[in-house]
Amino acid sequence: MNTHAMVMALALLISSAHLHAQDTVVIDGAVTDRHGKAVPLCDVIFNPSGFIADDSLYFKCDANGRYRAEIPAGHYNSLYSLDLPQYAKTQLEFWGWNLQLTENQTIDIAFDTIEVYSLAVWASNGGSQSLFAAFRPMHLAAAKLPRLYYKNVDGTPKAIMDISPTLTKSDIQASIDGEPVVLIDFHWSYEHAGQCSAGKDSPFSENEPCYMPMIIAQFHKPKLAPGKHLLRVRIQDHLSKEIGEGVTHFSSNSMGLGF
């Protein structure tokens, strides 16, 4: 093999190794409970295409509550973590949504009896210096005995299935890339979540549209560097002090405006 051919072969080998390195990423982190204590042998599941689909990737935490996942690089619909034997008995899940897992990174996880479910974030690009986050808060204690009632929303009575925790302004905290952000205010809204059940003690009619409480929270938007950011939301039930956390990725441009 002549020198030129050897150089070309070496270049192809390096290029192939580089492409392979870019094809997979390592996501790791610590999994803890509300007291910051490690949760051993829990599950961490990555969902590339949808909500718990055939292509979901399963990993186990170790005895020290740490996980390490080598996965294909790309966009992930979600990830979730739980202690499977205790799910819906003493604990619920941690959720991450709309995750850009294109390089190695650490995502720490905390779960308890509350879920920050279907977390999404967007910026007020033309108005206030704000970020908005929407999510459905769900509490295990309330889920075991759902509150079923009608509520007048904008002049229309809606059938509400309420399994939310009790929250005040001080019970909602958030950070961007680990730095706390200030909550300006939050409001309750209602998410259409399928059809109601007309069981024995239900006040609802068969197949009536059912709604669940969700939150829209407004946070002060700090100065953001261009690129990807991680928003973490932590909520705490005002009465029991039980917690839930969720994360999501979002991007900003060179002016700090979000996408």
Rank of each mutant, 00 (worst) to 15 (best):
Q105V: 05
T106E: 06
T106N: 01
D108L: 05
D108R: 09
I109V: 14
A110T: 13
D112G: 02
D112F: 03
D112P: 04
T113D: 03
T113K: 11
I114R: 03
E115I: 09
E115S: 08
V116P: 00
Y117N: 13
S118P: 03
L119M: 03
A120N: 07
A120Q: 11
A120S: 12
V121D: 13
V121S: 12
N125K: 14
G126R: 12
G126D: 03
S128D: 14
Q129Y: 07
Q129V: 07
L131A: 05
F132D: 12
F132H: 11
A133G: 00
A133M: 11
A133K: 07
A134W: 14
R136E: 11
R136W: 02
R136C: 13
P137V: 03
M138L: 14
M138R: 13
H139R: 13
H139T: 11
A141K: 07
A141V: 12
A141Q: 08
A142G: 01
A142K: 06
A143P: 07
A143F: 11
L145Q: 15
R147M: 10
L148Q: 13
L148E: 10
Y149H: 03
Y149S: 02
K151F: 11
K151I: 02
V153M: 01
T156S: 06
A159F: 06
I160V: 15
D162K: 06
D162A: 09
D162F: 04
D162L: 08
T166A: 05
T166S: 03
L167N: 05
L167W: 05
L167Y: 02
T168F: 02
S170G: 08
I172W: 00
I176K: 12
D177S: 12
D177I: 00
P180H: 01
V181D: 06
V181P: 07
V181L: 00
V181F: 05
L183E: 02
L183M: 15
I184D: 15
I184Y: 04
H187N: 13
S189N: 15
E191H: 15
A193W: 13
G194D: 04
C196L: 11
C196G: 15
S197E: 15
S197D: 11
G199R: 11
K200R: 12
D201C: 09
D201P: 01
D201S: 14
S202H: 06
S202T: 04
S205R: 10
E206Y: 13
E208R: 09
P209L: 04
P209S: 06
P209H: 07
P209D: 01
P209V: 01
P209Q: 00
C210S: 06
Y211C: 00
M212I: 11
M212K: 15
M212N: 12
P213R: 05
I215Q: 00
I216Y: 00
Q218E: 15
F219H: 03
K221Q: 14
P222Y: 02
L224H: 01
A225H: 06
P226E: 14
P226C: 10
P226G: 15
G227T: 02
K228Q: 14
H229T: 01
H229D: 08
L230P: 04
L230E: 10
L230Y: 08
L231P: 01
R232P: 02
R232L: 06
V233F: 05
R234S: 05
R234G: 08
I235P: 01
I235Y: 02
D237C: 13
D237T: 06
L239H: 11
S240G: 08
S240N: 06
I243Y: 02
I243V: 10
I243G: 00
